[in-house]
């Protein structure tokens, strides 16, 4: 139970941290100042959520670990974020499509997690949900605006969707630690939230005049710790200081 709860909490924390880190890469590079700030705000929200979860993970593991040990001192194969979150920013179209696919899942996920029998996870979900509601509003707006925009913006969004959609399936595919926790009412039943997510995605795709690729096989592995090469590059940046000067504080 404890081991599964730790894995589950880290899975949630890693999702938020890695996507937050990706968005933070936009800081100072946004297409216009207003969107630069918007993306950085979302990045900060996500890193904040990750911190709450890492603090809980440190308490669960109870062996003197702190919240910093998890992001800074674990190896790639110990991270349990979904592959979608580590996908590179590429351009604004990819960033928005990645964000929308994640937000639409995340919104229904946290809505359910707030009913978790684990009081701490439920409280974190309740707190995060307000931010996530805004994230979904932001990315949905941009999906529609660019998908149903000019010929060029439509094409860029459709291309991004073709490349990113294969990573969607992993979001709603339960890993063994999730299934194990389901019996205790701790984890979210992904089968239960899947129809809601699908309906939301469908609604926005229609408004954005975008077409979901027809594929029957999805990429997966991130929840188990099997990652794309991208995570290695992210961690090289993220962990540089702690790896080079172990225990450095400032």
């Amino acid at each position: 139970m404890k081991e599964n709860l730790l894995k589950y909490t880290l899975h949630l924390a890693d999702n938020a941290l890695i996507l937050g880190h990706r968005l933070s890469e936009w800081c100072g590079h946004g297409p216009v100042l207003e969107q630069d700030i918007a993306l950085t705000n979302i990045a900060l929200d996500l890193v904040g959520q990750a911190r709450n979860l890492y603090q809980y993970a440190a308490e669960i593991s109870g062996d003197g670990k702190t919240e910093d040990d998890f992001p800074y001192l674990r190896k790639e194969n110990e991270f349990r974020n979904v592959l979608l979150t580590e996908y590179p920013n590429e351009d604004f179209a990819y960033t928005i499509v990645r964000q929308f696919l994640y937000d639409s899942y995340n919104f229904y996920f946290y809505n359910e997690l707030k009913n978790s029998s684990d009081k701490r996870l439920a409280a974190i979900a309740e707190k995060s949900l307000k931010e996530i509601t805004y994230h979904l509003r932001f990315s949905s707006e941009w999906m529609i605006r660019l998908g149903d925009g000019t010929e060029v913006s439509h094409e860029k969004m459709q291309n991004a969707l073709e490349d990113l959609y294969p990573f969607w399936g992993e979001l709603v595919q339960a890993e063994d630690y999730e299934t194990a926790l389901l019996a205790f009412g701790v984890s979210v039943d992904l089968n239960k939230i899947k129809p809601g997510i699908e309906a939301k995605v469908k609604e926005i795709m229609e408004k954005a005049t975008l077409k979901l690729p027809e594929i029957s096989w999805f990429q997966s592995g991130g929840k188990k710790g099997h990652h794309t090469e991208q995570l290695g590059f992210i961690l090289t940046d993220l962990q540089y200081l702690q790896r080079t000067y172990p225990g450095a504080e400032w």
């Binding site: 100042l33 207003e34 969107q35 700030i37 918007a38 705000n41 805004y134 509003r137 707006e141």
Partner: peptide, 19 residues
């Protein structure tokens, strides 16, 4: 601030001025 329409202006204002 700059925005394409009123809705975007509201969201941008939320991000730029009410953080």
């Amino acid at each position: 601030l700059h925005a394409a329409d009123a809705e975007m202006a509201l969201e941008n204002a939320r991000d730029v001025y009410t953080r």
